[in-house]
Lab assay of single mutants.
Amino acid sequence: MQNSHSGVNQLGGVFVNGRPLPDSTRQKIVELAHSGARPCDISRILQVSNGCVSKILGRYYETGSIRPRAIGGSKPRVATPEVVSKIAQYKRECPSIFAWEIRDRLLSEGVCTNDNIPSVSSINRVLRNLASEKQQMGADGMYDKLRMLNGQTGSWGTRPGWYPGTSVPGQPTQDGCQQQEGGGENTNSISSNGEDSDEAQMRLQLKRKLQRNRTSFTQEQIEALEKEFERTHYPDVFARERLAAKIDLPEARIQVWFSNRRAKWRREEKLRNQRRQASNTPSHIPISSSFSTSVYQPIPQPTTPVSSFTSGSMLGRTDTALTNTYSALPPMPSFTMANNLPMQPPVPSQTSSYSCMLPTSPSVNGRSYDTYTPPHMQTHMNSQPMGTSGTTSTGLISPGVSVPVQVPGSEPDMSQYWPRLQ
């Protein structure tokens, strides 16, 4: 039975679970980093996980050691009161100082060594604690504590007292930064006198190289990059290397530039699409467009005044059976039934097929058609009795279509119309 579990990581490298990497692998990681390889490249070359490479390099940059820390136990506290007071002093002298600059000053002034120097995250935590204590304490208590930490007896009751030896409130920041720059020169002199001055200088240079600022491109470089971006948004590694040799930039910087440029292009394309949609959409909808001609068919113009009344309900007709019959029939052209047409008796099958359309009241044959006459024609229609054979009435077949029909004066039988409509 094995005491430890061995495995293979996602890159194909072998590791022992819970145990640190061998010293030979750690040394190779540092050597590759000094030669300029990126952590992701080191991870692929040595088949070590990216997190492990970053952790080893980060500890090497901070402490200069590649040895693993002790497994188990607690780390001794490195942010001692003396170190905290120095950090507060540096922050007062130059409020814009960075944590890694404070760390360098602690090393250069001999406050800490490589073994007990606090990390950048520890210094940031100390600065946050100082800021929170400043908010919790009152103004007087804060000034007393700062005077105690600074070891001075001057008056701290006013704002300019934060910067000793100065009279203009805006000047101390520059003086403090100048003092810090002077301390940086002392850093070089002190570290050069040490035993491991060369190694420390190499480590600091490598650290500065990794902690780079934003790349500033010249106009020629920007023009070359934009020209390549117009050709393709995704250049391959050969195109990037050719462009890197042409404009004297690292291939990694060119790759990052193209990634950022593609993101910018997507944002601009989104804005262009929004403007295009806004320009195509009308600002207001016309009133006429809300009524579609496919839904509402136009009603033909009436030929006679009587045809303006298109349904039985508008003429005072309360018989719903006839109203439904007229509205359900398709529109037909106007025609006239003459008196000489043969009077065919209704076929029983045809009569039964339209039995649902006729009223059940037996008085329908005896009703006159003056009910369908509009009010303004009552006088004219009353002067001509319906009993004469020459009287013409208008029957409504569908809305908007008038059918003048000659009705025999002897017997106005409704059943004569249905064979004609089939």
Results as ranks from 00 to 15, higher is better:
Ser4Glu: 11
Ser4Phe: 11
Gly7Glu: 15
Val8Phe: 11
Val8Glu: 05
Gln10Trp: 03
Gln10Asp: 04
Gly12Glu: 03
Gly13Met: 02
Gly13Ala: 02
Gly13His: 02
Val14Cys: 09
Val16Ile: 07
Asn17Leu: 00
Asn17Lys: 00
Gly18Asp: 01
Arg19Glu: 01
Arg19Val: 08
Leu21Gln: 05
Pro22Lys: 12
Pro22Asp: 05
Asp23Gly: 13
Asp23Ala: 14
Thr25Ile: 11
Thr25His: 08
Thr25Gly: 04
Thr25Arg: 14
Gln27Cys: 07
Gln27Pro: 02
Lys28Pro: 01
Ile29Arg: 01
Val30Thr: 08
Leu32Arg: 03
Leu32Ala: 08
Ser35Thr: 14
Arg38Tyr: 06
Arg38Ile: 03
Pro39Ala: 15
Asp41Gln: 06
Asp41Ala: 14
Ile42Phe: 01
Ser43Asp: 01
Arg44Gly: 04
Arg44Met: 06
Ile45Lys: 13
Gln47Arg: 06
Ser49Val: 03
Ser49Gly: 00
Ser49His: 03
Ser49Cys: 02
Asn50Trp: 15
Val53Ala: 02
Ser54Phe: 05
Ser54Thr: 14
Lys55Gln: 02
Ile56Thr: 03
Gly58Thr: 05
Gly58Tyr: 13
Arg59Trp: 04
Tyr60Leu: 03
Tyr60Ser: 01
Tyr61Pro: 00
Gly64Phe: 02
Pro68His: 05
Arg69Met: 09
Arg69Val: 04
Arg69Trp: 09
Arg69Phe: 10
Ala70Ser: 10
Ile71Glu: 00
Gly72Glu: 00
Gly72Thr: 00
Gly73Ile: 00
Ser74Thr: 06
Lys75Ile: 08
Lys75Asp: 03
Pro76Gly: 04
Arg77Val: 04
Thr80Trp: 01
Thr80Gln: 04
Pro81His: 12
Pro81Val: 12
Pro81Asp: 07
Glu82Asp: 14
Val83Ile: 15
Ser85Trp: 13
Ser85Arg: 10
Ile87Val: 08
Gln89Arg: 08
Lys91Gln: 04
Arg92Ile: 12
Pro95Gln: 07
Ser96Cys: 08
Ile97Met: 06
Ile97Arg: 06
Phe98Trp: 09
Phe98Ser: 06
Ala99Cys: 06
Trp100Pro: 03
Arg103His: 12
Arg103Asn: 06
Arg105Cys: 13
Arg105Thr: 11
Leu106Met: 13
Ser108Thr: 11
Glu109Tyr: 13
Gly110Met: 12
Gly110Trp: 10
Val111Met: 15
Val111Asn: 12
Thr113Arg: 06
Asn116Asp: 15
Asn116Ala: 12
Asn116Ser: 13
Ile117Leu: 07
Pro118Lys: 01
Ser119Pro: 02
Ile123Leu: 05
Asn124Ser: 05
Arg125Cys: 00
Val126Ala: 11
Leu127Asp: 03
Arg128Met: 03
Ala131Val: 10
Ala131Thr: 09
Ser132Val: 08
Ser132Trp: 13
Ser132Tyr: 13
Ser132His: 09
Ser132Thr: 11
Glu133Phe: 13
Gln135Arg: 10
Asp140Glu: 14
Gly141Arg: 12
Tyr143Gln: 12
Tyr143Thr: 07
Asp144Met: 11
Leu146Ala: 08
Leu146Asp: 07
Arg147Asp: 12
Met148Glu: 09
Leu149Cys: 04
